[in-house]
């Protein structure tokens, strides 16, 4: 399941920008909890960029209740969350 995320992370792929690398620096940390395919914590590979972005924004604004993600989503700007969602959703 995490192969898709791993496949994401080639740094020197043509045209990768510093902004993209900085998005990657955030997104790599998602895998700490979302790498194993356990029923407790879902992987992100079946979600589209739009779905991930909506969920992250809803966690941030407490529209979507959860135990942990609202505390984490508040650490990033909406732009950062969108970039992370695009990054994860592409893979």
């Amino acid at each position: 399941m995490i192969r898709l995320v791993i496949a994401a992370i080639g740094l020197l792929a043509a045209g990768i920008s510093l902004a993209e690398i900085e998005t990657q620096a955030i997104a790599l940390n998602c895998r700490n909890c979302h790498a194993a395919d356990s029923s407790e914590i879902p992987t992100l590979t079946n979600l589209s960029a739009e779905q991930i972005n909506r969920m992250l924004l809803d966690y941030k604004s407490d529209k979507l209740p959860a135990t942990l993600m609202p505390r984490i989503a508040k650490g990033y700007s909406d732009e950062e969350l969108k970039a992370v969602a695009d990054y994860l959703g592409r893979r």
Binding site: N32, C33, H34, A35, A36, S38, S39, E40, I41, T67
Partner: peptide
């Protein structure tokens, strides 16, 4: 989640 996060961290 404690168990799931542990296994994920090990896998990662």
């Amino acid at each position: 989640y404690a168990g799931g996060a542990y296994l994920s961290l090990v896998r990662d």
